[in-house]
Design a binder for these strands. Structure first.
Lengths: 291, 291
DNA sequence: GAAATTTACGGTTTTCGTAAAAATC
DNA sequence: GATTTTTACGAAAACCGTAAATTTC
């Protein structure tokens, strides 16, 4: 059994199909079949149940699956450690929330890329739920997400603190007026977004429970929708500051307990901390003191 | 870079020689050279400095070395996890002290092997210092060793508690007489044995500091040497009980603080716990209550 | 010159990709 | 009959072992 075997195995298990795994791995299916078969022969047990629509991991396959990502990450870490002479360099994969990226990351990234040009920084965005699994399953080295996040394998540090405000159309001058509105919608990112749950809790505490969510994929679209009266949303004050100034929307302050949101930077505890990551963490700390 | 590359790399780094690594790996040196060279080309840096007497790991090589064992262990764990259906089976590597093996392990092992015939149990003996590194570097799944052992990566549990006694020739009826003896020797296992340090501390507290150590490799030899008057040693009471009964040696009780020794079972925190290991731990707990 | 590493090279094994066959719904 | 996996097979690449060359003390 080798690391490349596990890589193929992981793709097949994740995609549930040898054909699609072959596409993702840039090879042909006969190859995938052969490698899986060889792996099964080596282990002396079957890893997949074959049906007409694809394959499904058996018990042994499911038990082996968590190791695939770890082996791949460990090999990548070995390479990184060898190349890491103390000067930050090499790849660094960071995940972030859309709002955090828009609001806080730009100055951090510009300073980082300027200071450490040898680091190939890649930032991907997603919801908190998605980012947490990305970190846990070694797809990114670390991520910004909104707490509370509790997991025994994760290390947390507060990166930024935000004041969340209730964002309404300019016609809604007092938030209490929302209770009377007939067709109120909550405008949120897709499922897994942590602001969505907060917003629902806040509205519920205001006696509003009938709001239907509208899922949008970009901040600008969300603000635009609020502006024309489609519904309300919950966002950091600084994100909507510009739209408020132009009278497109209104921002309503919330009680401290509801408005306080901490953006955490999370990492797996058991991974190698490269010089690039160390430098990034240091810059984050400095940033927190400023912002 | 692949797991097999790291395996070869690890052997070369550890042995400091491609020739000897080739012997250990059951291959020829040209092969080792080629694989190392390919690995260096792949990484784009040199892993070894070549001299006439062998090779030495460069900075990058030293940084990569710790990953080699981890990758190998993780692959072995992946295989074990796949084969582990809840019934204990497969290989289980346990390290143990010579004294613990003689004194406590026999009943534990006989019960374990009887209950779980599918487990291929391998017990190796060594000093505490050696066993700790064996566990840390993934050469054994767990080990019995004498505390105190503090390490952030290790999980400890008390397996047995022993009463240590000062073992002297039958002619020495009171331990205080030792101080007058001219050529006293301490009879100990090789360097790294935890009893050795205890014995030196005890003698020192008795005002004896000039004792020279004699290193022996077996318990029987140690007891025989004490019996004929070569020196003194420190061992669990139960180990020497038989020799005491035959008047070959005398066992002198020590103050509780000096005599109390805990045998710990240590494991790495970050490793997969197989069903076989779970069963072994359970039996250890049961054993502790008995003994 | 002795001990070790490196290079050269033929044979073997493994892996890859095309193409055809078999299985399942 | 359409989708997916499996098998067959020739080409390419990687790997292994023998033997000779090179380096370094």
């Amino acid at each position: 059994m080798d690391a490349s075997d596990l890589k193929i195995f992981e793709a097949v298990a994740r995609l549930g199909s040898m054909k699609r795994a072959a596409e993702e791995l840039n090879t042909v299916q006969s190859n995938v079949t052969a490698r899986i078969k060889a792996l099964e022969d080596d282990l002396g047990l079957s890893l997949f149940q074959r049906h007409a629509r694809g394959v499904k991991a058996t018990g042994p396959g499911q038990r082996m699956l968590p190791f695939a990502g770890r082996v791949a990450k460990l090999l990548a870490d070995a390479r990184a450690a060898a190349k890491d002479d103390g000067m930050p360099n090499g790849p660094l994969q960071i995940g972030s929330l859309e709002t955090t990226t828009a609001l806080r990351l730009a100055p951090l990234l510009s300073r980082f890329t300027l200071a450490y040009p040898e680091v190939q920084l890649v930032v991907t965005t997603g919801t908190t739920a998605r980012l947490v699994t990305d970190v846990l399953e070694y797809r990114v080295d670390g991520a910004f997400a909104v707490g509370p996040i509790e997991h025994p394998d994760l290390e947390r540090q507060v990166a930024f603190t935000e004041e969340l405000v209730l964002v309404t159309p300019p016609t809604v001058t007092v938030p209490q007026a929302l209770a009377k509105s007939g067709t109120l919608r909550t405008i949120v990112f897709q499922y897994g977004c942590s602001y969505r749950q907060k917003l629902e809790a806040i509205l519920s505490s205001m006696g509003i429970a009938n709001a239907k969510p509208l899922e949008l994929g970009s901040l600008d679209a969300m603000i635009a929708c609020v502006s024309v009266g489609v519904g309300v949303t919950l966002l950091p004050r600084r994100v909507v500051a510009h739209a408020v100034k132009e009278n497109k929307v209104l921002a309503h302050a919330l009680p401290q307990i509801q408005s306080h949101a901490e953006t955490l930077f999370i990492r797996r505890k058991d991974t190698y901390t490269s010089s690039a990551m160390k430098a990034f963490l240091k810059l984050c700390e400095a940033q927190e003191e400023v912002g």
